[in-house]
Design a protein around this nucleic acid. Structure first.
Lengths: 254, 254
DNA sequence: CGCGTCCTTGACACCAGTCAAGCGTTGTGG
DNA sequence: CCACAACGCTTGACTGGTGTCAAGGACGCG
């Protein structure tokens, strides 16, 4: 833990995760990369479990995750929470408010995060003068939509084991795409409660599902580290196919 | 049923549903509307239960629903189907393939449909020369994403009754937004099997859920017509809030 | 009239939620 | 240095919601 701040295993990227991510969606020029790099210059640290934006707000800036883990979520009147997405380094929190006006869900950090706030004017300038970047942002939005469709499919049709395995496959590939995962492990600081809220099952059932996956030798998850001894086997078990992530340059198998 | 072909109750709009829909997302000029109208000139009829596009394909044209009902869906290796979205008149089927390249899900008609095929070049021309239309298309894409988040929330956290009621509230508002629903009823040619595949429950349970809603006097659903005696009561029961549909000019309450 | 499709119903099993208790680890303060 | 609290993980017992199987009924269509 000596190099905590620089270790990829702690979701703190060595190079700019936004650029790494967008390069999976579009060809960027050297100038584009400089532009993006400048955009991410001013960072801010946020503690774990802090709300960044709440449902109904009209943020004037667009938030971007540079390190750490955050999530989208909704809370129902009865207090139940549904986690709608995990946001990893390189992910935008609220790019859509530029068009939609207000947030229809909330965002909070799950671990300590480094965030960048980008002004609406900067975004407007990008869309005017940087067509390749604009296209890459479009791509990122559409991939988010694809992930939502896959989550919906999992929640509706997969067993809790398969759904959980599928989520781990997805996170492993996404983290690898921004240089934040080893071939068969990644840092994943999620409580079983948070996982349960993402998968739409109870915490107790989440616990039992994880035990089943462990017993089958498919994963280990302890102290915030997910390890997958045999990635191909986990992917086969979950019927995972990374197509829906639409990565140009593939990082994982399947 | 004499005026079947022209009746709004059969999901056959009197005026252009695409324009009606997009006007909820952006201010369009008269010229914009002419442009959109011309885009929708050449229509094609498709029978019910026909696949329009299948997962993995790379369509060269973009499909748009002008009348009838279609859906997005995925099929798992074991044959289970998850319906990911209901497509009503004014909805695009595959606007995203222009950026993503291939479909990560399939589209099929649920009723007889009138479709428009728009060439990629036309879309490219729009994005170059018609900024207001481009912005409206962006808006439509982001609303689709918002709907997915709401469905995910319903599937994860709501009871089957509330989830079903919520879906009916949503469809009623969306159909009203394109002039295809009365204040408290709409044409909805869905089998219980299809509803079950959308909500992620078994057909038998879908049947019992509908009976419960009927017994509570919240809805009637028979012969392809959904009737909601008291819309406010159904919305209250489902905790429905139409914010996530991001309609500028509101059509329904709540 | 007969067939297919869809809706409905009952019986039954079981997966998954709830409640509740206990355990381990971490961090804090006396 | 130890006691204690807080938190997250684990476990058992029990209940109930939900899936499955199977049969029957209603309706439309050829």
């Amino acid at each position: 833990m000596a190099d905590f701040a620089s270790s990829p295993s702690c979701l703190r990227p060595a190079s700019n995760p936004l650029i790494l991510k967008l390069e999976h969606g579009a060809a960027l020029s050297a100038a584009d990369k400089v532009t993006l790099e400048e955009l991410c210059a001013r960072t801010r640290e946020v503690e774990a479990r802090q709300d960044l934006i709440q449902e109904g707000e009209r943020p004037e800036v667009v938030h971007l995750v540079m390190s750490g883990l955050a999530c989208r979520y909704k809370v129902l009147p009865d207090g139940k929470r549904q986690i709608l997405a995990f946001l990893i380094p390189g992910d935008f929190c609220d790019l859509h408010v530029a068009i939609l006006g207000f947030m229809d869900h909330s965002i909070c950090t799950l671990s300590r995060c480094t965030m960048v706030a980008i002004s609406s004017e900067s975004i407007a300038e990008l869309t005017l003068n940087h067509p390749r970047i604009t296209r890459a942002l479009w791509w990122a939005t559409l991939v988010d939509e694809g992930i939502l469709r896959e989550w919906l499919t999992g929640m509706g049709q997969r067993s809790s084991e398969a759904q959980t395995a599928h989520l781990f496959c997805e996170l492993l590939v996404r983290l690898q795409a921004v240089g934040l995962a080893e071939p068969n492990s990644c840092y994943l600081p999620l409580t079983q409660n948070e996982l349960a809220d993402a998968l739409g099952i109870s915490p107790v059932h989440m616990n039992r599902t994880l035990q089943q996956l462990r017993a089958d030798g498919l994963i280990t998850l302890a102290k915030g580290v997910l390890t997958v001894p045999d990635v191909a086997r986990l992917q086969a078990f979950a019927h995972f196919n990374s197509n829906y992530l639409h990565l140009l340059r593939r990082t994982g198998q399947a």
